[in-house]
Simulated scan of single mutants.
Amino acid sequence: MPDSTIEPTARPRRSRTRSRNVNGRPALVISTLKPHQYDLRPACASLICPGCKTWVPITGIQARQQKLVPHDTGRAGKDPSVRCQGSNRLIDVDVAYETWLERLQDGGAEIASRRPTTVLPRPFTPRTVQALRARAERTPAGRVADWKAVLDRVDAVDIARKRMPAGDAPLDGPSVPMTTLHPQRPAC
């Protein structure tokens, strides 16, 4: 029978295992981890595996001997099936549930105190308030009236720009074109 060409993928993790296998590594002491790296709630006791940095259930949290569930390093059904070296490692739970919960809440309060406060807008100056009021009071008719009042000065500036400067034209440079140039592409 030929070998399968399909590469084995990581299996879904079981929350409980009845395996008697024990990892040869020394027991992992919970008190050496930070409070946010493990969860001691009886319904979902778990911790971050030091080997693969994924959340793994703890088997037998109420029993005499606790250990990590056998698990693969990848995501279930997607990554290659590679057994983590931290599987079946014994766990030494030396922190009480109440102590862990208290440390976790204290850590959350500490983090909240380090976060920056919301940015407050600058206070309004009297000039800013005056400009905002004037903007709110303006109507479309008022804007047209303002434009008509300035239109004569704008026309005068445009005429002054079109006038030629007094004096002789430069001798060594090209003449300045007075009409708008519209270049054409050469025919191929």
Score class of each variant (00 low, 15 high):
46 S>E: 06
154 V>I: 14
64 R>W: 00
98 E>H: 07
57 P>A: 00
37 Q>M: 09
88 N>C: 08
149 A>N: 11
148 K>N: 09
156 A>I: 08
161 R>D: 12
105 Q>N: 14
42 P>I: 09
150 V>Y: 15
152 D>M: 10
86 G>N: 13
46 S>P: 00
112 A>N: 07
76 A>L: 00
160 A>R: 13
84 C>D: 05
45 A>N: 02
37 Q>F: 08
139 T>V: 02
123 P>T: 10
141 A>M: 02
123 P>F: 06
88 N>P: 00
129 V>P: 02
142 G>Y: 03
109 A>Q: 08
142 G>I: 05
66 Q>C: 05
65 Q>E: 08
101 L>S: 09
138 R>V: 02
149 A>C: 05
70 P>V: 04
57 P>T: 01
156 A>R: 15
126 P>E: 13
69 V>Q: 07
75 R>G: 01
135 R>G: 01
52 C>K: 03
134 A>D: 14
50 P>V: 11
114 R>W: 06
58 I>F: 01
104 L>T: 08
158 D>W: 13
150 V>E: 15
124 F>E: 09
156 A>N: 11
64 R>L: 03
93 V>W: 12
145 A>W: 11
90 L>N: 06
91 I>W: 08
129 V>K: 03
146 D>E: 15
139 T>S: 07
43 A>I: 01
110 E>M: 06
77 G>I: 02
158 D>V: 15
142 G>R: 10
149 A>M: 09
94 D>W: 08
149 A>H: 10
46 S>N: 06
113 S>R: 15
154 V>M: 11
48 I>A: 03
99 T>C: 06
97 Y>W: 14
149 A>W: 07
87 S>V: 09
100 W>K: 11
86 G>C: 13
116 P>V: 13
148 K>S: 08
